[in-house]
Design a binder for these strands. Structure first.
Length: 106
DNA sequence: AGGGTGACCCGCT
DNA sequence: CAGCGGGCCACCC
């Protein structure tokens, strides 16, 4: 993300967290929302990513809390392909958050 | 200022 | 385990 001054603090927070996700790992919308101090705003997080597609923000590394791949502006299957490319094993359209789901704070 | 939308989450059946 | 409904939050018209 560059000079996204047009965006709100919430949006920037989401991008910051998503951008901090290391390669080969994934995070959940709810977890991100909680990290930025907006616990429960998982929906808003997804909305933020959907409306803002930046190369600096690996939105494809954001999945659902249940391990589901979730949605993707460019296509879910495309998202899965990228995850696999990152090294994240996606079995039956599901990701093992126990292995790839990172946590910013314990 | 009010209402509708969405890449979600959780609980219940 | 799968399917359905309600609830939550932030953004846009």
């Amino acid at each position: 993300m560059q000079n996204e001054d047009n965006l709100s603090a919430f949006e920037r927070g989401v991008y910051a967290v998503v951008a901090s996700i290391p390669c080969g790992c994934v995070s959940t919308y709810s977890r991100i929302a909680y990290t930025i101090g907006a616990a429960g705003a998982a929906r808003a997080v997804g909305n933020a990513l959907n409306k803002n597609i930046y190369a600096d923000v690996p939105c494809h590394r954001v999945v659902q809390s249940d391990g589901g791949v979730g949605g993707y502006a460019w296509g879910e299957k495309n998202k899965i392909s990228m995850l696999l490319r990152e090294g994240v094993v996606v079995a039956n359209g599901r990701i093992d958050l126990k292995k790839y789901g990172i946590r910013f704070n314990t």
